[in-house]
Lab assay of single mutants.
Amino acid sequence: MQIFVKTLTGKTITLEVEPSDTIENVKAKIQDKEGIPPDQQRLIFNGKQLEDGRTLSDYNIQKDSTLHLVLR
Rank of each mutant, 00 (worst) to 15 (best):
T66W: 14
L50T: 10
R72F: 12
L56I: 02
A28Q: 12
D39Y: 08
G35Q: 11
Y59L: 05
N60L: 14
L8R: 06
K48W: 11
I61L: 15
E18G: 07
I30R: 00
D32Q: 11
Q31I: 02
D52N: 10
G10Q: 08
T12F: 08
I13F: 03
K33Y: 10
G35K: 09
K33V: 07
T9V: 15
L56D: 00
R54Q: 13
T14V: 10
Q2N: 08
L43G: 00
I13V: 12
K63R: 10
G10W: 03
R54N: 04
A28E: 11
G35S: 09
K29Y: 07
N25M: 15
L69H: 09
T14G: 13
L56M: 05
T12I: 09
F4N: 07
H68W: 01
Y59F: 05
L8A: 02
D21S: 13
D21H: 15
L15K: 00
D39T: 14
N25G: 11
L67E: 01
H68A: 07
V26F: 14
H68S: 05
V17K: 00
K63F: 08
Y59D: 15
V26S: 02
L69T: 03
K11N: 14
N60S: 13
T14F: 12
D58A: 06
Q62I: 15
K6D: 12
L50K: 00
K6E: 08
K6V: 15
L71A: 14
Q2F: 07
R72M: 08
R42F: 12
V26I: 14
K63M: 12
P37E: 04
G10H: 10
G35R: 08
K29I: 03
Q41R: 08
D21V: 06
S20N: 10
T14P: 12
L8G: 03
R42T: 09
G53Q: 06
S65W: 15
I13Q: 12
R42V: 09
K29W: 14
V17W: 06
K33L: 11
T9R: 02
I44H: 06
T14L: 04
I13K: 02
Q41Y: 07
D64N: 14
V70W: 06
R54H: 12
V26T: 08
S57I: 14
L15T: 03
P37M: 13
K48H: 05
L15M: 13
V26P: 00
N46H: 03
M1R: 08
V5K: 00
H68Y: 05
P38F: 11
D52H: 06
K33M: 11
A28I: 13
L56Q: 00
P37H: 08
D32A: 12
L8I: 14
G47S: 12
I13A: 13
H68L: 10
I3N: 00
T22R: 03
K33N: 10
T9N: 13
E51I: 02
K33T: 07
D39A: 02
S57M: 10
Q49H: 13
R42S: 10
L8E: 08
L71H: 06
L15F: 09
T55Q: 14
A28W: 07
G47W: 03
Q41A: 08
K6W: 15
H68K: 04
L69M: 15
E18K: 10
H68Q: 01
D32N: 08
V5Y: 12
E16P: 06
I30M: 11
I13S: 07
E34W: 02
V17L: 02
K11P: 13
P19Y: 01
E34N: 07
R72K: 13
E51P: 03
Q40P: 06
L56K: 00
V5N: 00
V5T: 06
K48F: 13
E34F: 07
Y59A: 06
T66E: 14
T12V: 05
E16Q: 09
N46L: 02
T14E: 04
V17A: 03
T9H: 15
T12L: 07
K29P: 00
G10V: 13
Q31W: 08
D58P: 01
E24W: 15
D32K: 09
L71I: 04
V17Q: 04
D32W: 10
P19E: 04
I61W: 01
E18L: 08
H68R: 08
N60A: 06
Y59R: 01
T14I: 07
D64W: 08
D52V: 10
Q49K: 05
N46M: 09
L69N: 02
T14H: 09
V17T: 07
T55W: 07
T22M: 07
K27G: 09
Q31Y: 02
R72T: 13
E51R: 02
N60P: 14
F45M: 15
I13Y: 03
F45E: 01
I36A: 11
D64F: 11
L67K: 01
T22N: 13
M1I: 10
N25P: 04
T22L: 04
T22G: 13
R42H: 11
I3L: 15
S65L: 06
D21I: 12
T55K: 11
L71F: 09
L8F: 07
L43Y: 10
Y59V: 02
L67I: 10
G53S: 09
R42Y: 05
S20I: 10
K63P: 13
P38S: 15
L67N: 01
S57T: 11
L71Y: 03
T7W: 03
R42G: 15
G10L: 06
Q40A: 13
Y59W: 06
I23P: 02
Q41K: 05
S65H: 13
K11A: 06
T7V: 15
Q62Y: 10
N46V: 06
D64A: 12
T55R: 03
E24T: 04
E24K: 02
L69G: 01
I3Q: 00
E24Q: 07
F45I: 07
K27T: 07
I3S: 00
L71S: 15
H68I: 04
K63L: 13
A28D: 04
I61H: 00
G53W: 03
D58K: 01
V26D: 00
R54L: 06
K63A: 12
L15W: 01
E34Q: 05
R42E: 15
T12R: 02
K11D: 15
I61V: 13
P38L: 14
K6M: 07
E16N: 04
S65N: 12
Q2M: 07
L50N: 00
T9L: 01
A28K: 08
L8Q: 09
T9F: 05
E24L: 02
Q49D: 02
T9G: 04
I23F: 02
I61D: 00
L69S: 11
K48T: 09
Q2Y: 15
D52I: 06
I61M: 15
N25F: 09
S20M: 10
P38V: 14
E24R: 04
K27V: 15
I36D: 02
T22P: 11
Y59P: 00
T55F: 12
P37Y: 06
D32V: 08
I3D: 00
R72V: 04
E34Y: 06
K63D: 05
M1D: 03
K27P: 00
D39H: 05
Q49W: 09
Q62W: 08
Q41G: 13
D39R: 05
T55E: 03
L43K: 00
K33G: 07
L43A: 02
G10T: 09
L15R: 00
T22H: 06
G53V: 05
K11M: 12
K63H: 13
L56W: 08
F4Q: 15
D64Y: 01
L67T: 10
S20K: 05
Q31H: 10
Q2D: 05
A28L: 05
T66L: 09
T7K: 04
K11E: 05
N60Y: 11
R54G: 12
E34R: 01
T12S: 04
Q41E: 13
R72G: 15
F45S: 13
I3Y: 01
T14R: 07
L15P: 00
E34H: 07
S20H: 13
L71W: 03
K29L: 07
G53H: 07
Q62L: 11
Q62H: 04
L15I: 10
D21P: 00
N25I: 13
V26A: 12
G35H: 02
D64E: 11
S20R: 09
K63W: 08
E24V: 01
A28T: 10
L71E: 02
I23N: 05
I36G: 12
L8T: 08
I44N: 15
E16W: 02
H68V: 14
D64P: 02
L43P: 01
L8D: 14
T9M: 04
N60D: 08
N60E: 08
V17E: 01
L43M: 05
N60I: 05
K33Q: 04
L56T: 11
L8W: 06
V70A: 14
G53I: 06
H68M: 08
E51Y: 02
L43E: 00
T14D: 11
T7L: 11
T66F: 08
A28V: 06
L56A: 06
F4L: 04
P19G: 11
V70M: 11
L43N: 00
L43S: 00
E18D: 07
G53E: 12
D52Q: 05
V26E: 00
L56G: 01
I30T: 14
R42K: 04
K48E: 14
Q62N: 10
T9Q: 04
K27D: 00
T7Y: 12
L69I: 13
L67Q: 01
N46W: 06
I23W: 03
P19H: 03
D32F: 08
T12E: 14
E51A: 02
E34V: 03
L50D: 00
L69V: 10
T7I: 07
P38E: 14
T12G: 06
P19R: 09
I36Q: 04
I61F: 07
Q31A: 06
T12W: 15
K48D: 14
I61R: 00
G47E: 14
S65R: 02
T7E: 10
L67A: 08
E16H: 07
E18V: 11
